[in-house]
Each structure stands twice: as structure tokens, then as C-alpha cells.
């Protein structure tokens, strides 16, 4: 019997520990599929960060390094500078990338570091139990903004828009894992990002709007609806920067 849906080569057989309705699993799968399709598995090194995806090294059937909180772009820089002909990607959440690791991501992008960053934005700290993230929307309730985020807590950061202003950046896109059509778009963006790296064009990043049903207090279905109807209003999907001309 023909296998219609198989596990990508670049994923291990370890079952994900993610909560029901969480889109980390989809994002993992998309990255693995892209690596398989581009034939990069044997030359790819992934960098796991700190947060819900801290165990990503268990799930990707790839050489992996686990980085300190926020430092994945620096670790990836170290790997890429040591082995320039390899493919290096980081997989980071919004707390890791946009809060504690803002310095590292900006400078990796500014240097045009030839790596790919998968940036999971679910607007909350998942692993530690639902605290405010730098990406938490105005009015959004978290355990540290019990009455909803106000301007006293500052405003949510639009990382893709910020980084797209930098000369070192080759490709930046924001996608949303809210329905099958969007998932297909997400995969396309991830594939573009890895291809940009393969061609040595510079820094590439895909921001993936993701769900956190557990900490949002929503059912999986309503969480997907929240991504589509609420998150994308503040964080519009799209390609913010891509290489010009033929590449």
C-alpha cells in the first residue's frame, strides 16, 4: 500500500511533548520537510533554544546544539563561521528571541550572518506558565498582566518589521499557522529561507504566528481562530524583505 503521509526523514520517531492544539509540531514538521526536500539533512546543524522548544534536539533527526536562553543566533554564528559550507538554523520562541535574545538576533541579522532563523511567535511564555512576552498583544491577559497588557507594560515588538530594515537581512517573512492554506504558505516561506542560505545570500528568518491554547485558555480550534482573527491584525503576514532580481 502506498504511504500517503510519512514522517519526514529529518524528524526522529520521538513523540512531541507539546500540548494539544499547539502548532510547534506543525512548525517542526514543516522545517523537517523542507530540509528533506532540499536534501540538506546531512549538512544541517540545528540550534535549539530555551522555551517550549528546548527539546527540539530530540525531535529533529539532525545534528543539533542546545543554546543558552536567547543566545541561539550567537551559537549559530559560531557554527557557521567554523563550518561555512554547512546549513545552520535556529529554532526560537518569542521570549528567547525577542526578549532576552534581542541583542543576539539583531546583530546576527545586522552582520548578514548566513543562517536561517525559525521564530515562533505565540505572544506568551509557554514553558514557564503563561507570563507576558515582548510580543504579548495590548489587552492580552497573561499571568503577569492579569488585567491585560497596558501601556505600563510597554508595547508589543514587531520583530520582522524591525529586522527588515537591516542591510544584512536577505529574507524575512511572517506566516500564520491558522489554517491549511496558511500552513502551505508557511512551508513555502521556510523553503525560501533555507534556499536563501544555501545560496549564501545572507540572513533569513521566518516568523511563525503560533498557538498556545493552554496558556491562552482557549480550545485548540478557538486558538487557531485567535491567530487568524486577532494576532494577524497586529502582526500582518507577508514577505518583508527578499532578495531582488534573479537568485
Amino acid at each position: 500500500m502506498a504511504e500517503i503521509l510519512a514522517r519526514p526523514e529529518s524528524l526522529t520517531k520521538v513523540p512531541f511533548h507539546y500540548c494539544p492544539g499547539c502548532t510547534h509540531g506543525i512548525a517542526h514538521r514543516l522545517v523537517a520537510e523542507v530540509i528533506d526536500e532540499l536534501g540538506l539533512a546531512e549538512k544541517t546543524i540545528g540550534v535549539a533554544s530555551v522555551g517550549c522548544s528546548v527539546l527540539a534536539y530530540d525531535y529533529f533527526n539532525l545534528d543539533m546544539q542546545q543554546a543558552a536562553h536567547g543566545r541561539a543566533p550567537a551559537v549559530a554564528t559560531g557554527i557557521k563561521r567554523a563550518l561555512p559550507d554547512r546549513i545552520v538554523f535556529t529554532y526560537q520562541g518569542d521570549g528567547d528571541l525577542a526578549s532576552i535574545g534581542m541583542g543576539e538576533i539583531v546583530h546576527a541579522a545586522g552582520r548578514g550572518e548566513n543562517i536561517t532563523v525559525i521564530f515562533i511567535n505565540n505572544s506568551i511564555y509557554g514553558m514557564t506558565g503563561g507570563q507576558m512576552a515582548p510580543t504579548t498583544l495590548m489587552g492580552q491577559k497573561t499571568t503577569t498582566t492579569p488585567e491585560g497588557r497596558t501601556k505600563d507594560n510597554g508595547f508589543p515588538l514587531k520583530v520582522s518589521e524591525m529586522l527588515a530594515t537591516l542591510d544584512g537581512v536577505a529574507y524575512i517573512a511572517r506566516v500564520a499557522l491558522s489554517d491549511p492554506g496558511q500552513v502551505i504558505k508557511a512551508k513555502k516561506a521556510i523553503k525560501t529561507a533555507f534556499t536563501v542560505q544555501e545560496k549564501g545570500l545572507g540572513f533569513s528568518m521566518v516568523e511563525i504566528l503560533s498557538t498556545c491554547p493552554t496558556n491562552w485558555g482557549l480550545s485548540p480550534v478557538n486558538a487557531l481562530k485567535y491567530v487568524k482573527e486577532t494576532m494577524t491584525r497586529y502582526y500582518p503576514p507577508g514577505e518583508f524583505k527578499k532578495p531582488e532580481g534573479e537568485w
Binding site: A67, A74, V75, R86
Partner: peptide, 20 residues
């Protein structure tokens, strides 16, 4: 490579050391 901070520098070292 001149890193943006000592924090970044040591983590770059981590990545490169891990790359052998």
C-alpha cells in the same frame, strides 16, 4: 569575528567548539 558583546562571544565559542 568581533562579537557584539562578551555574552555573544562566549556563545559563538560554544557553537564553534560544538562544530569541532
Amino acid at each position: 569575528l568581533q562579537a557584539e558583546s562578551e555574552v555573544a562571544a562566549i556563545n559563538m565559542v560554544y557553537g564553534a567548539a560544538g562544530a569541532g
